[in-house]
Amino acid sequence: MSVLQVEKLTFAYGENQVLRGIDFQVGPGEIFCIFGTNGCGKTTLLDCILGLNTPDCGRIAINRNPAKALSPAMTARQVAYVSQKSDRTFPYTVLEIVLMGRTAYTGLFSSPGKADVEMAEAALESVGMQDFSRRIFTRLSGGETQLVKIARALAQETPLILFDEPTTHLDFRHELNIIQHIMKVVREKGVSVVMATHAPNHAFFFESHGMPTRVALMQDGRFGAIGTPSEVLTPTNMAKVFKVVTKRFNNEEGDMLHQFLMPVDFCEPHEDPNPPQP
């Protein structure tokens, strides 16, 4: 049984065809990383799953519920979303931000109750941010902000969480912290994760820590390859998608195999007018 099922999904912004037939499934407790060039359609795909975009063709089912039949509140009880950056117009407290994760469980004319506050506090505790509940969200660092948003997604109590480049702009320490928390969420809560990312090494990290991980390599609105990180994140595939020469390193420590992928050169520097950003 799959938590998320996407079949023959196509989507266009007017004349601009962004998704051209996407097929994949995500099982319970699985981490599914979507890896691809800037503008290849990763965020558009996440928006389709969230119900923010209506697909032109194809079908999305979350926990066997057809996505197009779900109201916004019903969708939000099935799938949570951790964005790359947040709007910071009003300075809410951390607890208020996490409490907003309970909105899908409150009626149009009601507010979260005491049980919701307790749930939000528990969610904050599970990411180690319980001491931050009265702090102002807009004044937190990038890493702390992401942890609060993970807590909010946990408060949403969904079987599936979507992450859109969750570690962009973070330093090493915060990056590791976020990645470990994602693993913890999957392990402890049995949640499935779909993660749009530019960091292939995160997928290797999940794999080497024994998490059921798959990677989809996305290019021009299609999945070029789907499989385990070791199968998909190869120098050949990288050259095909990003037009870069990459080196893959293995480092064995005891029974753990760490793998890394690193870009070292452009494939055809003179023929590629827009080399991808490192």
Binding site: D47, L50, G51, L52, S71, P72, A73, M74, T75, A76, R77, A80, Y81, S83, S86, D87, T89, F90, M100, G101, T103, A104, L108, R152, Q156
Partner: peptide, 14 residues
């Protein structure tokens, strides 16, 4: 007030 995307993702019929 978090914005259209986040509000929708949190279950609000914006």
């Amino acid at each position: 007030s978090l914005g259209e995307r986040e509000a929708r993702a949190l279950g609000v019929d914006t």
